[in-house]
Amino acid sequence: MALREIGDQNFETEVLKAPGVVLVDFWAPWCAPCRVQHPILEELAGEMKNVTFASINVDEHPTVGGRYQIMSIPTLIAFKGGAPVAQFIGLQSKEALRAKLGGL
């Protein structure tokens, strides 16, 4: 599966009501480390079949960013059953993320 761009309008269906673990990448176009994080998530999305990967632009979609009080980007939040189960702040390496997500 690929990394999917989502927004305020479909956050509920794509993340909160989705089955399994969904990793959401909170990013913005002005953030350089976010752009480094992006291809890492795309690669992982191709390799980890049991996790869904989504990204949300906090500049265009402030409602969700505000709800989870995103104060630093990139921030990655893993959701399971509609609730956050893990949060990773700052640029994450592929191996580190794979290990952390594998344990959820």
């Binding site: 953030c31 500049d59 104060m71 980007i73």
Partner: peptide, 17 residues
Amino acid sequence: FFGRGVSTCATCDGPLF
């Protein structure tokens, strides 16, 4: 408070404030 207000990337996180 790193990532909860403390940041080392002003261009990334500045616009969130």
